[in-house]
Amino acid sequence: MTSLAPTPQVIEKAELWLRMYRQMLAIRFFENQVNELYTRALMPGLAHLYIGEEAVAVGVCETLERTDYITSTHRGHGHCLAKGASPDLMFAELLGKKAGYCKGKGGSMHIADPATGNLGANAIVCGSAGIATGAAFSAKRLANGRVSVCFIGEGALGQGVLYEVMNLAELFKLPVIYVCENNLYSEYTHFSETTAGDILARATAFGLHAASVDGQNVRAVYEHAQILVERARRGAGPGFLLCNTYRYHGHHVGDINREYYRSRREEQTWKTERDPIANFAKWLIEQKVATVKELDELSARVETEMKKAVEFAMATPYPSPDEVAEDVYA
């Protein structure tokens, strides 16, 4: 049975769904540009692409206010964009330029943006769990109504500090949500080789409200995150959201030959059957939220925007030498 017109619920949320679709496209095209910059040797350092995981960052961040806090990971471009960062200033940071979010001193793995509550990406696996929990501590003490979201990968499940702060968060009833992106691989090792027992049980053992969700379904992520964020905001305590997702590319851009740890067939299956953007587009069209043409036009606009952002970053200058010793101390 096919519906002839969108349901009232869909109409009510159409604007939200389209914004989420646009944000996912922004991340996809942003990362495509990063991949190109990196492979053309125009970008220094390391680049860990978020392609394939877009629904997680977007689904979660759409439930947050601009003043709410997030912490991010080495695979953090998606979180930054979803929280509202501007692509041109992000590309500038990725290229080490002065105009970048951190004046070029942070780079891809350390983008931070106070204006959007982004406490920073972190290159230590699980390195930001304490920070995110502390931001929630402030929010509670200062009674400013904010919540804090700690994005971590499943690799962070191996770090003891995560269990220390989850214990603290529950004891202090802090408004923090740990969002665990299980993209199946901790660098080059399948998570099943490094993760004993049940992941959710690790959070529920401390009393956290925990849920598991298909991380390729942005609406499902959004709905689950909304419940945890709402609970946290009203003082009911911390949450844990396990998002099952997949990393299309390697651990970093240079990780090309991956067959020793995962098959091409596996990658192909996720890309063709479980792509979060393609599947959401299909749903938007089915629900008559948008037409194929409208989505294509949106896609072209976003892609052009990303190309312009790269042009800005390429043209803007590096920091001057005298800036090397600035900002060591506040």
Binding site: G130, I131, G134, F137, S138, L142, S148, N167, L168
Partner: peptide
Amino acid sequence: PISEAGFTGLAVGAAMTGM
């Protein structure tokens, strides 16, 4: 709790956000 890394990390985040 006896969690030096945990409560020190919490303090870093709290310090960054107004405490």
